[in-house]
Amino acid sequence: MTYQLTHLDALESEAIHVIREVVAEFERPGLLFSGGKDSAVLLHLATKACWPQAVPFPVLHVDTGHNFPEVLAFRDRRVAELGVRLLVASVQEAIDRGEVTEDRSPGGTRNRLQTHSLLRAIEEHRFDAVFGGGRRDEEKARAKERVFSFRDEFGQWDPRGQRPELWNLYNGRHHPREHFRVFPLSNWTELDVWQYIEREQLDLPSIYYAHQRAVFRRDGLLLAVGPHSQPREDAPDEEVVVATVRYRTVGDATCTAAVESTASTPAEVIAETAVARVSERGATRADDRFSEAAMEDRKREGYF
């Protein structure tokens, strides 16, 4: 017996420890569940951390209204299997109520509008801790985020005023109306997530694997032709072709792009990820391209 854990076991154990700390110290946790692969792994880890109890806290989907049907089907399937309570914070309803205004310019997305619905849901359900599937390897601003990340009464993140985080001693103390975002997958990479999906044989939305889809190219990204994204009539280069693609990330359907791929199993995705030359967000997210600090700015306002 060498008493040595593999990297996946070590990451899993760390995540379970983090989730249990939250369950032990917070009164009203919730878990952000978009139906994407990271939140699927997160929810799986929550079931392990809470075992043999059922996951006692609700999951929250911030719904932009621009969904991939496969992802919604997966969301509902997982929620039913686990018997957890699903809460939906609808961006469409916030628009209909006139709380936020939609950017109707070409290329405009509902991405930034999610912050409003997320913060409103946190207030409404009085969550004091919200688990998210964010990883530090995703993006530069995330690389500086704590596992227990403090949010003030406005839901804001102050990157320069963060609490030091030492050993595995997490400080979740807060005043009423302040809350924490908690990131159990902080130390996981895209590759770790896929290796874990393979090892645990986790179910995912089918669009994570290669399939045929009508797509067009915009700003170097492959966007699906669908109810939420159409090629512009005045842009001759946005020609529609049928390609074999998969999704590396799943977000709002108007700003999440596909990648050309023939990977149809986790093992094939792992092989592809290991040699990928473009980052997950760079390949698939129009929303991160506004500026160098696009993510930092959104996070300061209270984004995921």
Binding site: A141, A143, P159, E296, D297
Partner: peptide, 16 residues
């Protein structure tokens, strides 16, 4: 990764 760091050319916080 932070805006202030990029502007000032210094590292403010621990990055992982």
């Amino acid at each position: 990764g932070l805006r202030a760091e990029r502007e000032q050319g210094i590292t403010i916080d621990v990055a992982y």
